[in-house]
Simulated scan of single mutants.
Amino acid sequence: MAYRKKQHIIPQHYLKGFSKERDDPTISTGNKIIYCHNVKIEKRHKSAIKNISYGNYFYGKDELYEVNDLDDENSDEDSLDCKNLEDVLNRFETQHNDLLDHVIDNKNLALTLEEMYSLYYFLILLKTRTKGAREHAVKSIKTISESVGQMYFDKNDHDDLRVEALPDPIVTHTEFMQALLGSIDKNLHLIVDLSAVLLINDTETNFITSDNPVIFYNYIAPKYTKYKITTAFACSGFMMFCPITEKLSILFYDKDLYHVHKHSQTTVKIKEKSDIDSINTLQVLNCNEEIYCYDESEIDYIKNLRSRVEKYIKEPKVTFTKLNKKYKHPDAIGDEIYSQQFMPYYKIRLSFLKFNEESMKIYKEIEESKNKNNIPCTVFRQELRNTLSFKA
């Protein structure tokens, strides 16, 4: 039987950033208080951090989901050091806790290369360990399995049969997380070219966070892109937000497509409440069930934000797009390719960020060319950068 039944989905060391007791050394991290609002049942409450955002055996039981010691280059299938996926995540959390404390204490992102890589790890893991990530993984596997199976039946004259895939949520999510942990080094190149700044909130309105705190965003998603696949790491215009305290938030952004007005090399001071409202709205739109905040008085503010954007809140879905038969896409199933929309689109406005007009012009030229040929992908940062370099 697993020795750890209560497994935290959002790390406690992350949530402590939104507690008034954050800097009190006499109170353990798990006992620090945070304020919560459940958007599904419209219930507000305060709670010790250890009692929120967890699930019983959320990452699986020891005897079912053993994983290798990832730090041991000589580990093999017979050398099982970690009991379950949460053990692996806990190994990262000690390192990430120190890193977040460093950023919070120094109020900047002047980090070494090793520290910056650790920050990438932290954000990717924080994004993919959630309930929302599990639901997306299950929905994707279910849709693809049903589509491929149905295609097989139809081609073999069994169109009277229907495929219904029922993937196991824990197994699907665990395998997804293990695959990610195994490939994260190989995929870092997809985000290391992004610029990083620390947003310093100089207003009276606090940042909020949620049970899905890392937000992928792209300004150009609906207007220019026919297939709307623009929140993948490598896409032009990709942005990633993650609040870490009520007054600090990390932002990664595409420096070729956006201009950001900085106050130092790694910081942006926000003085406009409307900017904070926009960033907080992304949390409200993307939360799974709960939003977390620094003070109980902020819950009415959260409810007001949600009421203003409720029409944008939709269930993420997996869609299939018909291809031009002259174009053969490596990920196509038959003559279709699947895509996922992970977040509802809501156009935010940030006073400190503007488009690079010259880059935007080139982006549109590339995107229009792809659309004419019915190519189901957006413009990638490297692709845009190569074109800009060639034209220069």
Rank of each mutant, 00 (worst) to 15 (best):
P316Q: 02
R129T: 05
N106P: 00
K322W: 00
K311S: 14
L64W: 02
K127F: 11
L99V: 09
D157I: 11
I141Q: 09
Y312I: 00
K326G: 15
L99F: 09
T378N: 13
D62I: 00
H13M: 15
G17N: 03
E357H: 07
I291P: 05
K372E: 10
E296K: 15
D211Y: 13
G132R: 14
L350D: 05
L126F: 03
E63S: 04
L161S: 05
H37K: 06
Y227V: 05
M360E: 07
I104P: 00
S19R: 03
F176Q: 12
L194Q: 14
I366D: 01
D81W: 02
M116P: 00
L384M: 04
K271R: 11
T225E: 12
S79I: 13
E77M: 01
C82F: 13
K372R: 07
Q341H: 09
A234K: 14
D105Q: 09
D69M: 02
F92W: 07
Y120L: 14
Q340L: 07
S145K: 10
L125W: 00
D331T: 04
C287V: 08
T128L: 09
E73L: 06
S249V: 02
I229H: 01
N286D: 04
Y217C: 10
I348G: 13
N106Q: 09
A234L: 06
M116T: 14
S359F: 04
N84Q: 01
I333N: 14
T29P: 06
E115K: 15
F252Y: 15
K354F: 07
Q283M: 06
N356V: 02
N356R: 08
E296S: 15
D254K: 11
Q341E: 13
K131C: 04
I52C: 14
Y65W: 01
E272I: 02
Y54M: 06
E164A: 13
C293G: 05
E86G: 04
H263R: 08
D154Q: 12
I27P: 07
D72T: 01
L15E: 03
E310A: 11
I200Q: 12
T205A: 03
K228Y: 01
I270D: 05
A110T: 12
K142F: 03
V192S: 14
D76G: 06
I313L: 00
L194K: 15
I244A: 03
I170C: 01
R44L: 02
L70P: 00
L282G: 07
I220D: 13
L194I: 06
N374G: 08
F252Q: 10
C377V: 01
Y292R: 03
D168C: 08
L257Y: 07
V148F: 05
D98P: 00
I200S: 04
